[in-house]
Design a protein around this nucleic acid. Structure first.
Lengths: 221, 221
DNA sequence: GCTTCTTACGTCTCTCGTAACAATT
DNA sequence: AATTGTTACGAGAGACGTAAGAAGC
């Protein structure tokens, strides 16, 4: 059974003491509410309502369940709210890694302006020439320049920085010897694997890609 | 989508940082876990995991969601536990109404023994000859004797008390002039409407009818 | 080659609404 | 007669597993 729907139906019905009103409020049929609550009662092994045509009255068990269920649903709403609000206004920690000399010249000078514009973002700049494991080090964005010693990470080598006149980074795929999928990855945007996946997901579900593009705007003058 | 299943899949995957392990633990396929978490991410508009073949790492949003989701699921478990435990060991308030003289003679004398046997039950005996509205007065069990003045409540008149030698109350249907459904009601057990429904529900879903029978054992010597 | 996550596809379960019924005012 | 809860039934959606693909070890 759809436990979520069942609990919601119960809570909607408990307040006015009516299945019909609950159904109207939830924009489903009375039969659905009735079924959901019957399923819930079967699952709990206890009656939640005393039924009469004069209205419904919560049983003792119904009252107990209602109290806890309300708290549970509240928690779940909190979970959704606080989580999805994270992508509404950019906020949190952004860990960026970059080569030392490149960083000093092209990134660090712009950080004061960046943090002014996005005060809720804490930039965590890992300035190093060491080849980091971007997963283990929890790097959100890696900037690489030149030919990497680790030739297995071809995708990284496809990212090239260009100070273009417009508000975009230009991503140029490496010429020659690139497999179709890798070329596609390079075409579609930033080229580390999970970023490509993220973009695909955005396209699928109409999520704003703001998070990506803002992240990429760090080095713009 | 099945929100509960999705959240559960997420929590199972977050701990070991693996969809496969979560799938094995939940006895579903990896594809199911993957789908659930993708749905959750689409719903929240935020990525919950950073994926790599070396394992998964929760994003910042993933950690936030995990914290809240854990609390929510905990609350829901509490709701189920505390509610269904109500019918495991008899506990709570039992409101019984009965005629004055009958009560004094056949019920009240047995209450000390009853409360000794079921110490977690508080019996609330409404001893009155007035015809109560059992819903409004929150009566769990009504004992009626003789012909009721309110002839519409035929079902009540079908309950007859008998001090049988075995551990049961014998319920005899009223002879003559009983409609098929009412006869069925009288046959099937205690005859106020919601009790009949309760019995039907028990039969359907294999719920123990213990709660009913215990309630009915009040007057046994 | 093995493991891991992803995804398209077909099946099948399961949910929902419709509609008829029961019960009461 | 009107309202409210229940339930059988059929259509439709949606979930699941299978299997193939992609990516990294």
């Amino acid at each position: 059974m759809d436990y979520f729907a069942a609990v919601r139906a119960f809570l909607h019905a408990a307040e006015p003491g009516s299945f019909s009103k609950a159904a109207a409020q939830m924009e489903v049929k009375t039969s659905t509410v009735s079924r959901h609550i019957n399923e819930l009662e079967a699952d709990l092994g206890i009656a939640l309502f005393n039924r009469s045509t004069r209205g419904l009255v919560l049983t003792e068990g119904g009252q107990v369940f209602r109290t806890h269920a309300l708290a549970a649903m509240q928690s779940l709403d909190d979970a959704r709210q606080s989580t999805s609000s994270l992508n509404a206004s950019p906020k949190g920690v952004l860990r960026v890694t970059m080569p030392a000399s490149f960083g000093r010249r092209h990134v660090i000078p712009h950080l004061p302006e960046f943090t002014r514009r996005y005060p809720r973002i804490d930039v965590d700049a890992v300035v190093t020439d060491e080849p980091l494991n971007i997963i283990e080090a929890r790097i959100d964005l890696a900037i690489r320049v030149g030919v990497l010693p680790d030739s297995q990470r071809v995708a990284h080598a496809a990212l090239r920085f260009s100070l273009a006149p417009d508000d975009k980074w230009i991503l140029v795929k490496r010429t020659g010897g690139v497999s179709p999928t890798r070329a596609a990855a390079a075409r579609s945007g930033p080229c580390i694997r999970r970023r490509r996946r993220w973009r695909r997901k955005c396209a699928r579900s109409s999520i704003s890609t703001r998070r990506c593009s803002r992240t990429m705007r760090i080095g713009r003058g």
